[in-house]
Amino acid sequence: MSKYRYLCFLFVSMLVPTLAFGAGETVHWMTPHYTFNRTTVIAGARYFAAHCMACHSVSSLRYEYLTADLGMSKSEVMKDIMLPSGAAFKGTIDSPMPSDMAAKWLGKPPPDLSHMDRYLGSKFIYTYLLSFYWDPARPSGWNNYVFPMVAMPNILAPWGGTVGPKGQVIYPGKLSPAEYHKNVADVVAFLRYASDPSYFKRMALGPYVIGILLLFTILAYLLKTAYWLDLKKKGRHVDSRVKRS
């Protein structure tokens, strides 16, 4: 298989989660359990910066948005999220890994994750992150139930543990499954924010905008009834004030 077709195959298999069904395996889509609020998203952002940002960008986002949208302080962002690679606070959240290098190491460049949540959905990302298994036949040693022939290694194995193709535990992780699943759910929450950055603004503003429009609607309704009273009266179907020439 030419490298090119291989890449295409990878991409397509990612686009078509149903391919996994075709392969005769049943995927149990797992729903991440998290409350979507700023705390969860900040936890996810920290986790993402520590574990994912070495390879993946979320380049539609800027560091400064983490302060404006999530309420982190500038120093927290600089300390916990920004990479020491000379990134600017107003700049986009880019991975320091040059993509040609990444292509060499991993077989394909890690995709930008800005819109992944809206594109693939939270369930897919969550299940994908929890579906790695050890497969010595693969160059990286890793394979994935929902994304066969995955190029990404299971970088979370030290925390979540390593399982074999049949789901048997090879090494247990440093974290309990509950803690680990919570961390992964936080990352999913962060990616959801990344793909829908206006979420918190909309939630904050929505009630006021709807409120004033409702007020307008009620007033307009009363105005309408005040005028239409004319029609209720017998024999008079138009407002006496409307001049008839």
Partner: peptide, 22 residues
């Protein structure tokens, strides 16, 4: 008559529109 009635329609419609957007 219909301008005030349509104004009310506009109010209801915009409320729905904004709810969808937000």
């Amino acid at each position: 008559y219909y301008t005030v009635k349509d104004l009310f329609g506009v109010g209801v419609f915009l409320t729905i529109f904004v709810t969808i957007i937000f």
